[in-house]
């Protein structure tokens, strides 16, 4: 076991453990906090994989903005105590069976894929840095980033329209 493998094993255990805790928490607020922890652990993994810019985006946008939105809606609706009891008695075993089947198929596909390099190639110092990713974003991917900005604008307008109280029915 190299130190890298031990580090990866630790991160993997933390990520899977927090994901399972998210899944089986009774309280939706705890679920959201476990998911924040999971995103932060995955951001550390991104940092270790030389994706510094994406790691920072993950922390600010995912663990920050998106999860705050989740927590806000959970507390607005007061939906944190809905029990996770399945409506039919077959729901739990069926969900576990289908999840395990999907994992088996994915694992088979990934473990028997044409082998990549056993040892990862060395990276240059600025691989994945904000400057490199940014210049790539605004040169080669200029049109997609404009489309993404329009998409964000449309979703913002859509969210406002959807949550607007109906006319003549004051709440």
């Amino acid at each position: 076991m190299t130190p890298d493998l031990i580090l990866f094993a630790l991160i993997a255990v933390l990520a899977v453990g927090s994901a399972l805790a998210m899944l089986f928490s009774r309280n939706a607020v705890y679920s959201a906090l476990f998911l924040v922890f999971n995103f932060l652990v995955v951001a550390v993994l991104y940092l270790l994989l030389n994706a510094a810019f994406i790691a920072m985006v993950q922390v600010t946008v995912y663990a920050g903005a998106i999860m705050v939105l989740f927590l806000f809606v959970v507390m607005l609706l007061g939906g944190e105590q809905i029990s996770g009891k399945p409506s039919t008695k077959w729901q739990l075993p069926l969900a576990l069976i289908f999840g395990a089947a999907l994992l088996a198929v994915l694992g088979y596909m990934l473990l028997f894929r044409p082998a990549g390099a056993v040892s990862l190639p060395a990276v240059t110092a600025d691989f994945g840095s904000p400057a490199v990713v940014g210049s790539e974003l605004f040169r080669r991917y200029l049109v997609p980033i404009e489309i993404a900005s329009v998409l964000l604008l449309v979703s913002m307008v859509g969210a406002i329209v959807l949550t607007r109280p109906e006319k003549g029915k004051p709440e």
Binding site: L23, A28, I82, L96, L106
Partner: peptide
């Protein structure tokens, strides 16, 4: 690791009834 996390997500969609979860 990505496959395991994805499967946990699928189980969550199939299992939980709270729309936010």
């Amino acid at each position: 690791l990505a496959a395991v996390l994805f499967s946990i997500g699928v189980i969550g969609v199939l299992l939980r009834r709270n729309a936010i979860i």
